[in-house]
Design a binder for these strands. Sequence first.
DNA 1: TTGACATATGACAGGGTGTCATTTAGAATG
DNA 2: CATTCTAAATGACACCCTGTCATATGTCAA
Lengths: 203, 203
Amino acid sequence: MPKITFFNLPEDKKETLIQAAKKEFSRVPLYDASITNIIKEAGIPRGSFYQYFEDKDDAFFFLLNELTREHKYIFIHLLTRNNGDIFETMIEFFRIIISEEENFNFLKNTFLNMTHRIEKAFSRSFSANEKNESFEKFSSLIDKTLLNISDENELFYVLQIIAAVTFRSFVDKFARDLTIEEAMNTYLIEMNLLKKGLYRGPA
Amino acid sequence: MPKITFFNLPEDKKETLIQAAKKEFSRVPLYDASITNIIKEAGIPRGSFYQYFEDKDDAFFFLLNELTREHKYIFIHLLTRNNGDIFETMIEFFRIIISEEENFNFLKNTFLNMTHRIEKAFSRSFSANEKNESFEKFSSLIDKTLLNISDENELFYVLQIIAAVTFRSFVDKFARDLTIEEAMNTYLIEMNLLKKGLYRGPA
DNA sequence: TTGACATATGACAGGGTGTCATTTAGAATG
DNA sequence: CATTCTAAATGACACCCTGTCATATGTCAA
């Protein structure tokens, strides 16, 4: 989390700083991003940056969390509108995220360099990597009668699977520079396979 | 790829260098690894390192590729022994990898910082992220009659899905410090869900 | 012995990070 | 208005790491 001083900043200065950071993290992934570039762009001295943030990671995760908060909001909206059908929801959600133009490069750099820490932060928007409050919230909105599960506990693993495949599809979209329709086609095929099952068994 | 000079090195010096690199990449992920530490450990001057490798990444991917080559060998052996049953094979394979003691920390650092580049290198061992020679090889060994697919083309997506879920399970194992049995239990549940399908549909 | 080529070496420039002593600003107080 | 106290701003600097390059060393063949 950024320090209090950051939140105490006048709105416009805060916004300048956020935009500068966003620009740098859109240019290159966290790994290669340089604080020097951010402060140059924002026009603030080096010491000030450390007045506001712990370090580079702190600034990055602040931005990422802002973004996933919006995503989570969208996701919950979609899930409600689709009467708890998780597959329909994921498909709509997937399209929306890959269509985001404003954050395209930020997302690209993030997905192509998805460390565990980043994945954890990101998956808050549509899944839950631990059995936490988020999971309870999602669980209550999902129509479990549509799913091939015997108990509440299995729902967790179903979501894990869907999340894993979805993440990979995001990465694929950015890695291979797929168009939106190409990515959607692939994603639809995979979601259908997930739905109907991969195994037929010995004849 | 390392430079020719590296391969020309006397066996023992090459081995020392490999061990030094392995030690550093086991200590911390690629991101944080320092060439300075590697050369200190190996007892060679800085310039020499650059005589052998392009840079840090070059050394890392050399090690990773060595490892995945062994994994691929194991995988193909298992797939053959299981008469092309991809699920049985994955389950055995998963256990073997998470049981590796010698490379534990190297694997841990690698899985918890799995960028797209690393994933690509790694997945050569049991999957294929593009429709390449590896895919043809695997495809020919897999008993497709066991799978719920209508054409050869769908096999690719089936493997993508299995790979995605398996990767996530690896990450989970290391991230949450699961015991081998805990990780296996989770993996088995997920593989079974994948097999039978996640969807039941409206009543 | 000499030349030519491959390899080894370590000093160094360049660039980035995080810190800290000092300065400045602003609010509160008498 | 002067004074004091605290929060915030600042930028020079120490530290660390990377990749390079001019120079040294070794080896082999003529």
